[in-house]
């Protein structure tokens, strides 16, 4: 990467972050989702914060904050994908694209800068919510190690998942209307994460599982709040089992790498589509 490319990337990152983080919907959508979470996820919070709920056995810090991450990630990523869907196409819609494209700045570097900048801005409220809950938990149960686990979970589960989602949210609206993308994305998110594999073919529990089944299972040793769930690996009789090797630390890192490679491919595809339109 030449220094000029790095500077282009840095400039787009900064300005795309700035524009997105100031957008009201970037804060309102996650706020409403959290309200929803508090209403439907109340039982989980009670599990975590009220020891009496769990027969006097409070969940230990790791299980608690990882469990929290799964809930926050599963719910707030939906809004995250929807909020990013206009970012790339709006350059055309606002008619700013011609002046950007007439600069000597490399379009690929601008795209990556936009991806990281707008993605980071949209992730800020999610991280605020997650670390807010994790900090509350750490104080409430006097378990400072909870924050360490929260950071680790963020790094191996939330960030790779969001990078995966952001790549598609940015580029797919180049080939379909953004509202249609949002509908399809929500459907995909529920199908690929929630639907159990013996019901119908799904990406849940595979290496391409943006909710992070492999790292949850093999890196964080998380098996549900009650300790008897698994999050990755083959399901007897399900299709796509070739994508579900046994969860080990190696397959967990492999799964993170697969998410990032697929994300990079989506960005490269988007870049090619734009270049072709010239």
């Amino acid at each position: 990467m030449t220094s000029q490319t790095a500077r282009t990337l840095g400039a787009s990152l900064r300005y795309e972050f700035r524009m997105q983080v100031r957008k009201r919907s970037v804060w309102i959508v996650p706020a409403l989702t959290v309200v929803l979470f508090l209403l439907i996820g109340g039982s989980l919070l009670r599990d975590l914060f009220d020891p009496n709920e769990r027969k006097g056995q409070p969940a230990e810090a790791r299980t608690a904050v990882v469990g929290l991450a799964v809930q926050v990630h599963a719910l707030l990523s939906i809004g995250f994908g929807c909020l990013l869907a206009d970012r790339l196409i709006r350059d055309d819609r606002l008619r700013v694209a011609p002046i950007l494209d007439a600069t000597p700045a490399r379009p690929g570097a601008r795209l990556v800068g936009k991806y990281l900048g707008a993605g980071a801005a949209t992730a800020v409220p999610i991280l605020v919510v997650y670390f807010g809950f994790a900090a509350a938990y750490a104080v409430h149960t006097d378990a400072p190690q909870a924050l360490g686990w929260a950071l680790a979970t963020c790094a191996v589960v939330i960030v790779p998942g969001l990078l995966f989602v952001a790549a598609f949210a940015l580029t797919l609206p180049l080939v379909m209307p953004a509202p249609l993308f949002r509908v399809i994305f929500v459907g995909y998110w529920l199908w690929g994460n929630v639907v159990v594999p013996d019901m119908m073919p799904t990406l849940a529990r595979t290496l391409v599982h943006p909710l992070g089944g492999y790292p949850l299972d093999a890196l964080l040793d998380f098996h549900g709040i009650d300790g008897d769930d698994t999050w990755a690996g083959p399901v007897p009789g399900a299709t796509l089992n070739f994508l579900r090797p046994a969860p080990t630390p190696t397959t967990a890192w492999l799964s993170i790498a697969v998410l990032l490679v697929v994300a990079a491919a989506a960005l490269a595809g988007g870049h090619a589509v734009r270049a072709r339109r010239a």
Binding site: R7, Y15, M19, L94, V96, I99, L100, T103, A105
Partner: peptide
């Protein structure tokens, strides 16, 4: 011509100056 409505005139020009090297 279009502009980014969420930036100020100064920010918009600064961004383009950066892209122009």
């Amino acid at each position: 011509l279009g502009v980014y409505p969420d930036l100020t005139a100064r920010q918009f020009l600064d961004y383009l100056a950066l892209l122009k090297g």
